[in-house]
Design a protein around this nucleic acid. Structure first.
Lengths: 219, 219
DNA sequence: ACTATTTTTTAGACAAGCCTAAATTTATTT
DNA sequence: AAATAAATTTAGGCTTGTCTAAAAAATAGT
């Protein structure tokens, strides 16, 4: 397995939710910042290797084998992100690019030992779940902040928008995945959420646009 | 900079001691397990980029720029080896291949933080010195075990032969870089060294062939 | 249902990094 | 100093992963 193929499989996995009956060529091209013709070429090769199912002019889905590889790459990416934030004290908004490189290091023993070293974390610094060695996620009932009931005690699990701009916006608000809070009030007019952070007197205001990108779990 | 170029520069650096007036094409080809014609191709490109000095049919030397990059790759390789051994508890004979991959991760901030996290180690698990961020090594007066004076208290700094076979041989002998010892006696006939390990009653016998590959410093 | 548009694929080309085989230069013998 | 051997380079080709432009298929609009 090589880096390029791994990135294609990871891309397909990332888009598979939005395209349940097959990822389109254009969507994958956009996701990987490449041209549709390159996608077609590579998918043909991955199909021959049995990693994806792709028929001409139809969407593409991962095979069991391809999905397994994709999940291992995701696992590595997220474990390395935990390492970078927890051990090397990077900001959680600075680790994506480095993890994009580290996720391609080949050594199952390394991944196992890294996970052990980190205490087998189940979520990365952005709140995304880390698949275990077999590819299984911890399932959780999640809800966007914009849909949380008032007065409910919640945990900020993660973010929907992973852009640096959004992560830095959260940083300014003092919000970080893992933060506990209570939704005090939601404004009728514009959906702004007034939130009480756990372990702090401060109340903060969160716009609907922002609230729509915050993934929460009830406590 | 890409991985291939980094490996060429690292190879040139590794061979530069043995070829002070220019690394030969064949030597580099052997070192990188590739063909001489491939070396010629690549050296032409590296020369154009100003990373090496290479004239037709003459040996090759690193430029200042090329040497700087090579030293940073060496730094990364050795820091990652320390990480793998100290933090993830790999055996010191198991880390080379993984470090060969990790050394190509691009991020100076990562290297700085990794070095900090590890306590700015000056030697890797094989006893090889780790260049600092500016490319400077800690200079030491070293001597091979086969040339150590008897009764002198010494520290095993590192190994000359880095092959897995040799590392595993040392493991069997119970020898590891950092080990303190005293050379009790050297046999007249075959140069076998009788050594007393510090913190142990045991005396071990080390053949001349092995002793020739053990780098030591006086205490 | 039949164009018009969008999506996808094909065809042909290119750079990187490698190879083999042949040619050239340098080094070693005699 | 010429002949031979060794080292190095050149020439031409292959694979991977990308691209642009053109062709083909699927979808949408009237």
């Amino acid at each position: 397995m090589n880096q390029t193929a791994e990135n294609y499989l990871k891309g397909l996995h990332a888009l598979s939710e939005r395209f349940p009956k097959g990822v389109t060529t254009n969507a994958l091209a956009e996701h990987l910042s490449t041209k549709a013709s390159s996608i077609t070429d590579m998918l043909k090769k991955l199909h021959e290797k049995g990693l994806v199912k792709h028929e001409k002019y139809q969407g593409t889905v991962l095979s069991a084998k391809g999905k397994k590889i994709a999940l291992q790459v995701v696992r590595k990416h997220r474990l390395w992100e935990v390492f970078l934030v927890e051990k090397l004290h990077f900001g959680w908004d600075q680790v994506h690019e480095i993890a994009e490189q580290l996720e391609h290091i080949q050594s199952t023993e390394l991944v196992d030992r890294l996970s052990e070293f980190l205490g087998h974390p189940r979520f990365d610094p952005h709140g995304d779940p880390i698949p275990d060695a077999k590819g299984n996620f911890l399932e959780e009932k999640v809800v966007l902040l914009s849909a949380v009931n008032t007065h409910q005690k919640m945990l900020l699990r993660g973010v929907k928008d992973h852009s640096t701009a959004f992560l830095q916006h959260l940083k300014k608000l003092g919000l970080v995945p893992g933060q506990k809070f209570q939704l005090l009030h939601r404004m009728e007019y514009d959906g702004t959420c007034e939130v009480q952070l756990h372990g702090s007197k401060e109340k903060i205001q969160i716009s609907q646009l922002t609230a729509d990108n915050l993934i929460c779990v009830a406590l």
